[in-house]
Design a binder for these strands. Structure first.
Lengths: 204, 204
DNA sequence: GACATAGTCTATCGCTCGATATAATTCCGC
DNA sequence: GCGGAATTATATCGAGCGATAGACTATGTC
């Protein structure tokens, strides 16, 4: 309900009715409407962390090892993006999760900042680090940030609500998910393969 | 106000106060809050059309001419994306326009569908046609749609509100706009340059 | 100077919102 | 099967919402 109608739009009466409980149950169990909202966001944050955990640790391990080839960096970035695609197109309550992700970029409601901060930490920062190495510029550089955003934008657009009307069916079938993953992978490969090899002046 | 607070969040009292008029003026001049909203959306739609008009007609002319090279198609697509970047980062009331674009993808408020439909017509459809020719698949194909969405996603991400917190300054300076345009161009060139040449079995 | 029109003002209507006070009910150890 | 705690149901509060009624003011016409 929060994802579909927004925080303001999802009234406590609607929430209680859909949950099959009485109205004051929200205050009884969650303190307030905001408390319920934060619980929802926290649940999704947890799902995200669980989903990205294995890849995150793998990446941390590989980046820690002294020598890592450009091809390995690129492969890590592609896996990261593929995991992001899987995150926003699968798992429990996909539709709601995707919409809530999209809302986090627009709405300024309590708790959504946690969701956004989580996305920054779990998705953006790892990608930024990889892109930084791939283009041989520090992650603080604006060019690095912009490039990372553009690459990630290829995925985030599939979170949008109305954009899905461009497709005949709104559902993310396994075939479609694989198609998107393959698409993002090939694009990303093309983007960074064409890049000149690292000028070897990056740190470490 | 609509862009920042959303349709529901921008109360008529707030709107009237910020406009320096009395409360019933909204109903007097626009019939209702929704009428005012539609007027706002209509204004932005008009801006968008005016902004994209020259490129649209140029593209229509080139596509109508029988022979058009792959390089020319690619150049057209890049110009289209650059114009899209310019659209969401410049012109009057940039910030509001960008936020409203982002909201159009999430909110289901009256009149926003017009904004979304306009984006589909002015941006997505032309890009879809170009991508269709570039990858040699009909525009109805899901693969064509997905590819176009991914390419456009590189730009739409810059419409997001919170994502901009990733940058040190939120403002879109001319240098930053040019950097984004160059970035999107180089990415798009890489994506479609690596593609195998058209199998020559596309229509026309 | 009387009058019609256009536009603005204050006050308020009916409604929905989140939250709560309070009563009724269910649950569970004993 | 009883008593107290946990939970649920009913009724309602105060606030804010969009919209409107109706009085007031400015303006142009004759």
């Amino acid at each position: 309900m929060f994802a579909v109608h927004g925080y303001e739009g999802a009234s406590t009466r609607l929430l209680a009715e859909r949950a099959g409980v009485n109205l004051p149950a929200i205050q009884y169990y969650f303190g307030s409407k905001e408390g319920l909202y934060r619980a929802v966001v926290g649940d999704i944050v947890g799902q995200t962390e669980a989903h990205m955990a294995p890849l995150s640790s793998k990446m941390r391990a590989m980046l820690a090892s002294s020598a890592i080839s450009r091809a390995e960096l690129l492969e890590l970035l592609c896996e990261m993006l593929e995991a992001f695609v899987a995150l926003v197109t699968g798992g429990p309550q996909v539709e709601s999760k995707r919409l809530l992700f999209a809302r986090a970029e627009v709405e300024a409601t309590p708790g959504l900042e946690e969701l956004h901060e989580n996305g920054r930490r779990q998705i953006f920062q790892p990608c930024l680090d990889l892109v930084s190495r791939l283009i041989g510029r520090p992650p603080e550089d604006e060019a690095t940030v912009l490039c990372t955003m553009a690459v990630i934008g290829q995925v985030t657009i599939f979170c949008h609500n109305k954009v899905q009307h461009l497709l005949k069916t709104a559902e993310f079938t396994p075939e479609r998910v694989r198609a998107i993953q393959a698409l993002v992978r090939s694009h990303t490969m093309a983007i960074f393969a064409a890049q000149q090899p690292i000028p070897a002046n990056q740190s470490e």
